[in-house]
């Protein structure tokens, strides 16, 4: 993951340039009218409201996660930790269930992303080639799955018939390829990789696979990084497949463990002795857990955000 991010950062720069150049330069007025200045004050007020509405709940959670169990349970925390302590994190990180969920999720995210990206590229590259006869029919067949689906139970029956129930495969394979990243990849291969690249390779006698591996993929790293991060975040955040396909708790990803602790209120008192302390710790633990599970995503999200934007637009052009 780390290397993907740095690659995205480096390779991304040149492709960012045209977007920046295309940015509209607003004609600057020397003096704005009173109406306009009042209007602008309103605009800023509105945006600051938006900012606070998004930010306050997040700050409240973070502040609570560093507060004492008693302060949290008494509702005394607002936006700053009260009686600062790392107790919540200690309890969270000493729970075998949570640690196992975390490592499971790391595995599912790494393996799932690898599988998803590989399959998506294998699908998208041929479908992007104009000399690939049948690409229109196949692209249509892929896109159609976005409009119509067999449903939850018929899919469950397939997963069951393949013997994937209650195995790690159930979280890696049944949702491996998403249509949207595939469209993104097809569009990228078609528009951002010049035909001359392939022609040069063919002149040198390279096969299609070799052209893809040594010439096209290195040029496509920004796109690969985007879809990898997209798949990674979706995989890290999902709980639904685990809910329906897994019974064995030792295979649970973090999100399903979180759901059981945070929403169903099972377990989570740590090593507390009294019932009251247990209850208070269970409360505090929830806040710490939210922070622990969200930090990985928040760390990579700024890198994703700008590419997501571009992906969104690229997808919008074609999709």
């Amino acid at each position: 993951m780390v290397s993907a991010v740095t690659v995205a950062e480096k390779k991304g720069e040149p492709t960012q340039a045209p977007a920046a150049a295309g940015r509209r330069t607003r004609p600057t007025k020397v003096r704005e009218s009173l109406v306009d200045r009042l209007f602008l004050v309103g605009v800023y007020a509105l945006l600051i409201t938006f900012l606070l509405v998004v930010l306050l709940p997040l700050l409240y959670i973070v502040a609570s996660s560093f507060s004492s169990p008693a302060a949290v349970s008494a509702g005394r925390v607002f936006l700053w930790p009260v009686e600062f302590t790392l107790r919540g994190y200690e309890v969270a990180l000493s729970s075998p269930k949570i640690v196992r969920g975390f490592t499971n999720s790391l595995f599912y995210t790494a393996a799932g992303t690898l599988i998803s990206v590989t399959l998506t590229v294998m699908l998208a590259y041929p479908l992007s080639r104009a000399d690939f006869v049948g690409r229109k029919v196949l692209t249509g067949a892929v896109v159609f799955t976005m409009l119509f689906a067999g449903g939850m139970i018929p899919t469950y029956l397939v997963v069951q018939a393949m013997g994937m129930l209650d195995t790690r495969w159930a979280l890696l394979i049944p949702n491996a390829v998403a249509v949207w990243p595939a469209i993104l990849a097809i569009t990228y291969f078609r528009t951002a990789i010049p035909d001359e690249v392939r022609e040069a390779g063919e002149l040198d006698g390279a096969s299609d696979l070799r052209i893809l591996w040594t010439l096209v993929l290195p040029l496509a790293t920004p796109m690969i990084a985007v879809i990898a991060l997209m798949y990674a975040i979706v995989q890290w955040n999902s709980y639904f497949d685990a809910l329906i396909y897994l019974r064995d708790e030792s295979l649970y990803p973090l999100q399903l463990v979180l759901r059981n602790i945070l929403i169903l209120n099972t377990d989570g008192g740590g090593d507390a002795t009294s019932a009251l302390e247990r209850q208070q710790l269970a409360n505090l633990l929830k806040y710490s857990l939210i922070v622990i599970s969200t930090v990985p995503v928040m760390l990579i999200y700024p890198f994703v955000a700008r590419y997501f934007t571009k992906g969104l637009l690229l997808g919008a052009v074609k999709g």
Partner: peptide
């Protein structure tokens, strides 16, 4: 050859469920 595995995926996990319906 390259496109076979992903197509197999769509056949198994998207189109087969439509049939199962």
């Amino acid at each position: 050859l390259l496109v076979i595995p992903p197509l197999l995926y769509f056949a198994l996990f998207k189109y087969l469920p439509m049939g199962n319906a």
